[in-house]
Design a protein around this nucleic acid. Structure first.
Lengths: 155, 155
DNA sequence: CGCCGAACGTTATATTATAACATTGCGCTT
DNA sequence: AAGCGCAATGTTATAATATAACGTTCGGCG
């Protein structure tokens, strides 16, 4: 697992996606929730993709380009979609914080510079050289919180 | 995946571990690094354990009791070991932050109240009801940082 | 042309995790 | 003590996720 997000300051020459990468990315962008690799594969049978390796290769490349993230706690993938907090704008965003609804699986990618700084400080106190971080929080989204209160017992 | 950590204020009646749970916990406590379920199984063959389900059941119970954590990014498990920052003491610790060395796999469990608060705030801004969080950061531990500088190219 | 490297296609297999079901042990009630 | 209930167990099978390995295709370029 060696996935390096793109550097924060974008250099122009984005080498364009291969066909498979474009297909996989479009699939993830079209999905309402994170998708497992095999779910992506199922949706791309019509486009001629047949084997897991094809999906995993594309996902891997997309992660290297910073266009896709892997949600470790779900073994699933999402297209990168920053939600920009209006408060921070232009400032370096922190690492991605994924907020995942346990009920409907809807997922949002947030950022917060304070968290990033705090984690870095924590790590450095241990003499630890930080490389990547994954922050995933689970609970109930607003919609599902409301729904579940009226109707407990639906999975 | 429904793993709830024990409440912060300990109530006495800890229901004691079953044999299998004790074996699995001891194995994780004895390990220098996080272990996959099958690695735990391998180390417990001599004790009569033979099937993955036995291990997963014990791990599951231990997680419910808050004695074991799962590292999502490694599909591996560690015995719970808080490292108490001398600065915070008695105060509610934040969620666990796992710091994992990509080189030697050594892992530390840290806590930081600020991070917890910040994540909660972020989530609440989205109307999100927080349930569990997983924070895992990867990089190089102090020892491996030094080693790798002198000797680049050892995996 | 002929080579090279990157992406691809394909088959097989490794790794991680759970389903399903019969069995055992043990406390409790009757 | 008999019988019940329930939790943990043992066991077999299988699902879900991920990677290895290898040959092929294709486009740029000397």
């Amino acid at each position: 697992m060696t996935r390096d997000a793109a550097p924060h300051l974008p250099d122009r020459p984005e080498p364009a996606l291969t066909r498979n990468q474009a297909l996989v990315l479009a699939t993830l962008e079209a999905a309402a929730t994170p998708l497992g690799a095999y779910a992506v594969l199922d949706r791309l049978r019509d486009d001629g993709l047949k084997a897991p390796a094809q999906i995993y290769r594309a996902l891997s490349a997309l992660q290297d380009k910073g266009l896709v993230h892997r949600l470790e706690c779900l073994n699933a993938f999402v297209a990168c979609r920053h939600v920009h907090d209006p408060a921070e704008d232009g400032a370096p965003p922190g690492p991605a914080v994924f907020v995942i609804c346990d009920h409907c699986s809807a997922t949002r990618e947030l950022t917060d510079p304070v968290i990033g700084g705090q984690i870095e400080r924590l790590a450095r106190n241990q003499g630890f050289g930080l490389h990547t971080s994954s922050i995933e929080v689970r609970g109930l989204c607003a919609a599902c919180s409301r729904a579940t209160q009226n109707d407990p017992g639906t999975t």
